[in-house]
Amino acid sequence: MYRTLFPSTFFAELDRLQREMQRFAGPTTSIRGFGRNGFPALNIGGTPDSVEIYAFAPGLDPKTLDVTIERGVLSLSGERHSDLPADDSKSSVHINERFDGHFRRAVSLSDDVDPENVTADYNDGVVHISIKRRASAQPRRIEIH
């Protein structure tokens, strides 16, 4: 509804501004881009013995989610269907902001993770993937005798 108040270039302009600002964020850019504004939004964190990935992907059937790890890249893909009614004269759509369609996001993992040791669950619309680091890669304190 309110979108009609702005020319479509308004949002393009915002995007451009955001990209301009990101240019100053650092000297290097990931080859896979910033991956911002994508669906699902990702939060990534780590502990000394695991890598924790949270994907904010509400309204999905976890069975249709595809999580794979291949050559150090974790990818998460699936499809979300629109909840809006099909185009007909009986209803009118006022706001359409939620993502629908196919999605795929990839995360390059550090070398020390163990792709055999992964757990994933889906709660309150968030996919939580936990990947253990290899024991040999964990910091070890060496005793001096």
Binding site: A41, S92, E97, F99, D124, G125
Partner: peptide
Amino acid sequence: PPVDVFEDASGITLYADLPGVP
């Protein structure tokens, strides 16, 4: 939160994405 809103003869239906909220 992003929302979808549509209206038909019975009223208004709204969907909102609130991932991570119990």
